[in-house]
Write a protein that binds this DNA or RNA. Structure first.
Lengths: 346, 346
DNA sequence: CTGAAAGCGCTTACAG
DNA sequence: CTGAAAGCGCTTACAG
């Protein structure tokens, strides 16, 4: 089949040990020897067998990334950013990216338990919280490097937007427009409100509402599954309230987009009778005119790889935590509250 | 670290060879022995080291999937479907899914050339055409199984919607509503019109236009990059034509969504002055009211895995080709052409 | 039905 | 700076 290290050694007139050292850029190889080996490898189109390297060396070149669902916009952006960074490395170092969606693997626990993950990945990017101390310990014990995205854990490097602040700024935007009844939709019962992005966002909404002294009606918080459909269903419930909200912050743009349309179908003008703010800045948000709190997810995926690789090469350096900025993008789904316009126009 | 095959052998009181056979379900193992081995493996939480298996056995359990971009809706759906099928196998057989976006790897050629792909994957699902005969040969020579999605190749199993027919039915829908000037937007210059989904869709549009005897003005076909932004830019060009079209079929829903908004911003009513049809049925399409030709991409990802696995286990059986149905979803972006309503309302 | 042994293609101390 | 040799954890003929 393809060339082995022995073929290269033969052609270069050295031992396989020397080939191994030369090709991996280890010190203690004479420059002339290294050149000869490199040339031989090139001629033979030699690339080390990753399985053999991993078995012999005890480590490979894979990084796993655990996301909520490969079908979600957010996770796709993250993967794309991570892939570009990992495969775009100058040397095409041979790294590969292994995505796992927690849906398919039975949550992070399913992944950590069922699979000999140490034998598969050197590093893990976890983008679907929460991450328990026990899980972190298990990962550390296995000798696998860890980085988080979208939330932080004390002992692991990671980066995220300030999830709570993002939601709070959505509320603040509406408040500045005169809204007093501002609703929230999003996942609600996640593992007892662990530190997931959704839970943090909900906290931020509640904080913003309190800060501004807005209506604190519990009915203004409705659970919703993170999809356009979830948003449509949730908004219908909100609009059936005795006194419907005039403003809405949705936990994600996908939710907001579903809500926009369903609200209009229910006879409410957006933003005339209901102002809507999303979070994320989904690809299509600009094109449906959705006001949102934007973040650059792709860049975060790339950055997560950088942090992981740094951690991997520098050993246990200090734990880096980065907070990435967001920005309010005012488009066409938010406007001033209209006095006395709290009932639907049929 | 974790248990090895030797630990299991010791605990079960058999040789490692027997453990290997028993655990992989090979014949010629006494039922009682198999039970003992299975129990020992369970107790020890033993799972075979994939690197060692691959090295010794010459084959592993990875399937690669080549898509255009991990950030695109279509590709995310495909991955999600494939992952669910591959990891959801009853036995959690240990398969893993390796996605590659042709953008990041320099096209399929980059993948086939640069990497010792035979050592990494047993099978390849290619969802980003075209696929040349040379490439197919290379894959076959390497002993890697191949399946295509979204287009077909003579010698490889695969499945796809009838891309051309999808576009044609979009044109037909508009024609039935009285439209005579129907435009197209999409990628235009792909590798000299190879058999990519986009190229097929364009062909289908042209065929539909001709069939119906519609206006054949070359200016009605505008190139567009497959994104909402691309759609917005392309529709502006169309609406600046001396005689703008009254109907538009977009190569994808993402394109159509961008076009909807940009057309409205330009003072055109949708569907009043411009009817728009997309292709795909993107997650948000229902919620923006987009008329489209829908397909179930997720199911196709799952099915591709099935075809690949069947091919892998049954050896070179017959080549299966499947055409998956699409359906016209009439929503709110298409309507009857209004006589004499070809100029914009400022 | 089961075991002993070779071998997959590398890496890594250990000598020199 | 370089080589000989052991070993990583499996699978697979080959015997029995």
């Amino acid at each position: 089949m393809s060339a082995t290290i022995e073929d290269v050694a033969g052609r270069a007139g050295v031992s396989v040990a020397t080939v191994s050292r030369a090709l991996r850029g280890l010190p203690n190889v004479a420059p002339s020897t290294r050149e000869r080996v490199t040339a031989a490898a090139r001629d033979l189109h030699y690339v080390a067998d990753p399985a053999a390297s991993r078995l012999a060396g005890g480590r490979g070149l894979s990084v796993g990334i655990v996301v909520a669902s490969l079908a979600r916009w957010y996770d796709g952006q993250l993967l794309a950013g991570a892939e570009a960074e990992l495969l775009g490395l100058d040397s095409a170092a041979g790294y590969e990216l292994l995505p796992f969606s927690s849906g398919a693997i039975g949550g992070l626990d399913g992944f950590l338990e069922a699979r000999p993950f140490r034998k598969r990945v050197e590093g893990l990017i976890v983008a679907d919280g929460p991450l328990s101390d026990g899980q972190v310990d298990r990962i550390a014990e296995a000798g696998v490097a860890l980085t988080t995205v979208g939330f932080l854990h004390e002992v692991a490097p990671g980066l995220t937007i300030d999830q709570a602040a993002a939601a709070t700024s959505g509320v603040a935007h509406l408040r500045a427009l005169g809204h007093r009844r501002v609703a929230w939709m999003g996942p609600v019962d996640h593992h007892g409100l662990g530190f997931t992005p959704s839970a943090e966002r909900l906290r931020g909404y509640l904080a913003g509402r309190e800060e501004g002294g807005l209506d604190a009606d519990p009915g203004l918080v409705v659970p919703a599954e993170l999809s356009p459909r979830g948003g449509a269903e949730a908004v219908r419930r909100l609009l059936e309230l005795p006194t419907p909200p005039t403003g809405l912050v949705a936990c994600s743009d996908e939710l907001a987009i579903g809500a926009m349309q369903a609200a209009r179908d229910a006879g409410f003008r957006v933003p005339g009778e209901l102002s809507i703010v999303g979070i994320d800045d989904h690809d299509v948000s600009e094109y449906v005119g959705l006001t949102t709190i934007g973040q650059d997810v792709r860049a975060q995926g790339a950055r997560a790889v950088q942090l992981l690789l740094a951690y991997l090469s520098e050993g246990t350096a200090e734990v880096v935590h980065e907070i990435v900025p967001t920005r309010l993008l005012v488009r066409r789904t938010t406007g001033p509250v209209r006095p006395g316009a709290t009932s639907p126009t049929p």
